[in-house]
Amino acid sequence: MSPLILIPARMRATRLPGKPLADICGRPMIVHVAERARESGLGRVVVATDTVEVADVVRAHGFEAVMTRVEHESGSDRIFEALTTVDPDGAVETIINVQGDLPTIDPKTIRAALAPFENPAVDIATLGVEITRDDEKTNPNVVKIVGSPLSENRLRALYFTRATAPWGEGALFHHIGLYAYRRSALERFVKLRPSPLEKREKLEQLRALEAGMRIDAEIVATVPLGVDTPEDLERAREILSR
Rank of each mutant, 00 (worst) to 15 (best):
residue 135 D to E: 15
residue 135 D to Y: 12
residue 135 D to H: 12
residue 136 E to I: 01
residue 137 K to P: 00
residue 139 N to A: 09
residue 140 P to K: 09
residue 140 P to W: 15
residue 140 P to R: 10
residue 140 P to Q: 12
residue 142 V to P: 03
residue 142 V to A: 13
residue 147 G to C: 05
residue 149 P to E: 06
residue 150 L to S: 03
residue 150 L to M: 11
residue 154 R to Q: 15
residue 155 L to Y: 00
residue 158 L to P: 01
residue 159 Y to F: 11
residue 159 Y to P: 01
residue 160 F to G: 02
residue 161 T to G: 10
residue 161 T to M: 06
residue 162 R to Q: 14
residue 162 R to E: 03
residue 162 R to N: 15
residue 162 R to W: 10
residue 163 A to Y: 05
residue 164 T to H: 12
residue 165 A to D: 06
residue 166 P to Q: 09
residue 166 P to E: 09
residue 167 W to R: 11
residue 168 G to V: 10
residue 168 G to H: 11
residue 171 A to N: 10
residue 173 F to G: 00
residue 173 F to P: 00
residue 173 F to Y: 15
residue 174 H to E: 14
residue 174 H to S: 13
residue 174 H to N: 15
residue 175 H to Y: 13
residue 176 I to S: 01
residue 178 L to C: 09
residue 179 Y to P: 01
residue 180 A to I: 03
residue 182 R to I: 07
residue 182 R to E: 04
residue 184 S to C: 02
residue 186 L to P: 01
residue 186 L to K: 00
residue 187 E to R: 06
residue 187 E to T: 07
residue 187 E to G: 06
residue 188 R to I: 00
residue 191 K to N: 02
residue 191 K to W: 04
residue 192 L to N: 06
residue 193 R to T: 06
residue 196 P to N: 14
residue 196 P to T: 12
residue 197 L to W: 14
residue 198 E to G: 13
residue 200 R to L: 14
residue 201 E to D: 05
residue 203 L to Q: 07
residue 203 L to V: 06
residue 203 L to S: 03
residue 203 L to Y: 09
residue 205 Q to D: 08
residue 207 R to V: 05
residue 208 A to F: 02
residue 211 A to P: 02
residue 213 M to I: 08
residue 214 R to E: 12
residue 216 D to V: 03
